[in-house]
Design a protein around this nucleic acid. Structure first.
Length: 484
RNA sequence: GGCUCGUUGGUGAAACGGUUAACACAUCGCCCUCUCAAGGCGACAUUCACGGGUUCAAAUCCCGUACGAGUCACCA
């Protein structure tokens, strides 16, 4: 073997949520840390009742949008296919191995019904006893089993576990974990519909696909010993295990798509960039060696180290994602930024204004794309504002001072030789000086007159430039009327 | 309830027996500035869930307690 092979094995049951994506990311990074490492996508659709149409496409789309390119998978093929478990069922793969285990005495055929077991469990719980199912079917004779199968009685194949002794495994993140075999219940390997359970399929497929490193959520920590018993029974080499801490919504609950909207596509729809999302979630449960926090996917591949994955759950903090998204937006080259932001500008600004200029004043200010329309809501229509807006302590203005500033500004702007940023800027600065006032005393009222808002992207001069002479003077006149 | 895992500031976290307990987000000040944002500077854990123990020395090792999470499905 030698080369690392990891897999991301989601079940197509709906949207891709953030915790899941992070697991995919880590699996990808573990593989790509090795120059020859392979990242495999496997679809685990063994629960026929939970399938959701289109869910597989969401998985493909999400991985693609994030740049988590898989080397093998249902859509790209590979020598270890098929990569969809229901297709593997058709090959009789799982049943074959399950029967083999039965022959070896490591599993048995079971005719018990769910209701039966559930009832026994409830009785035990009522008595306050812990419940480990001791399957009577284990004692069935071969003849009896054959007869009942021939009769068409439904059955499952269940793992046999010797209750004596302990089982341990070494997790790369959590260290050595040991459990008493007596606490392990004998899980179902093959369901009555002939499909394997995850518990079984994952072992078979990981082995058959030569997966060297199993990366998954820590909810599997407690069932891993049972998987290892299977590996041992089959005489297979066990993979390295990398169990990841959970991503939490708050102190008590894991992140779930059901309650919040923390799916990847929700975040994208809210105006977050895939690369920022990926960068942020990489830091949930993993810390780089350097102090740096901004990493491209390629840089993450270099910096990533399993040893620095943490063990406790991390709360997803949308505020920090917001900040990080802003960093990506600010550092983006302008052309790409403009294309990205243009739909949002169009949504808010229908007037004949230069979108490129608007993009410029937005670039340093917006953290999320979807907050852009609101920032620009004064362009098409001047909001109705109260003249109390002209009172600003820091700018040393009030309505009386503002009126004066606007009269002077209007005088200058009506006669300015050329309507461009530099000319207006220099002229206004000169004007303030001539008037013997601080820049703000002159600029602030102009900006308020143009926008009707206390805070705007861009200052008085930038806004004047974008609005053009006519509209600028028109808005100043409106202000003067209000202040009259 | 049994078993497994976890617990450093509001959040993400560093520290791998000896530091003033990094850094980042958020928050709050100040500076810069035509507003806001960005940027700069500074404040913010006398303390690492709690209680014992080991040690000259513990957030770091050990034990216990509390709290939390996961698991105990013909779900993954």
């Amino acid at each position: 073997m030698g080369n690392i092979r990891t897999r991301f094995a989601p079940s197509p049951t709906g949207y891709m949520h953030i915790g899941n994506l992070r697991t995919a990311l880590y699996a990808y990074l573990v593989a790509k840390k090795d120059p020859n490492g392979k990242f495999i996508l496997r679809i685990e659709d063994t629960d026929q009742g939970r399938l959701i149409e289109g869910a597989t496409d969401i998985i493909f789309d999400t991985l693609k949008a994030c740049g988590l390119k898989h080397d093998e998978g249902p859509d790209v093929g590979g020598e270890y296919g098929p990569y969809v478990q229901s297709d593997r069922v058709k090959q009789g793969l799982y049943k074959e191995y399950a029967m083999k285990l039965v022959e070896m005495g490591k599993a048995h055929i079971c005719f018990c019904t769910e209701e039966d077991i559930q009832a026994q469990k409830e009785v035990a719980e009522a008595k306050g006893e812990s419940f480990i199912y001791r399957d009577p079917c284990k004692k069935l004779s071969k003849e009896e089993i054959e007869k009942r199968i021939a009769n068409g009685e439904p059955y499952v194949i269940r793992q046999n576990i010797d209750p004596n002794g302990t089982t341990s495994f070494d997790d790369e993140v959590y260290g050595t974990i040991t459990v008493d075999n007596a606490t392990l219940d004998e899980m179902i390997l093959l369901k009555s519909d002939g499909f394997p359970t995850y518990n079984f399929a994952n072992v078979i497929d990981d082995h058959l696909m030569d997966i060297t490193d199993v990366v998954r959520g820590n909810e599997y920590l407690s069932s891993t010993p049972k998987y290892n018993l299977l590996y041992e029974a089959l005489g297979w080499e066990k993979p390295r295990y990398i169990h990841c801490p959970p991503v939490m919504k708050d102190e008590h609950q894991k992140l779930s798509k059901r309650n919040g909207d923390a799916s990847f596509q929700d975040l994208v729809a809210k105006g977050y960039l895939p690369e920022a999302i990926l960068n942020y979630i990489a830091l949930l449960g993993w810390a780089p060696e350097e102090e740096r926090e901004i990493y491209s996917l390629e840089e993450l591949c270099q910096a990533f180290n399993v040893k620095r994955i943490g063990t406790s759950g991390a709360i997803f903090d949308i505020e920090k994602l917001k900040w990080m998204n802003g960093v990506y937006l600010r550092e983006m080259e302008f052309d790409r930024y403009k294309d990205l932001v243009d739909p949002y500008i169009k949504e808010a600004v229908k007037g004949p204004y230069d979108h490129s200029e608007i993009a410029h004043i937005l670039k340093e200010r917006a953290n999320i794309l979807t907050e852009i329309p609101e920032m620009l809501d004064f362009f098409d229509e001047l909001p109705d504002y109260d003249i109390s807006l002209y009172t600003n302590k820091k700018m040393k203005t009030d309505p009386v001072i503002a009126k004066n500033s606007l009269i002077e500004a209007k005088k200058f702007l009506s006669e300015v030789s050329s309507w461009d940023h530099d000319t207006i800027h220099d002229g206004m600065i000169d004007l303030a000086q001539k008037l013997g006032v601080k820049n703000g005393v002159l600029m602030y009222p102009v900006r308020v007159a143009l926008s009707g808002k206390a805070f705007t992207p861009g200052g008085a001069i930038e806004l004047s430039c974008i609005f053009g002479k006519e509209e600028t003077l028109r808005r100043i006149d409106i202000a003067l009327e209000k202040l009259a």
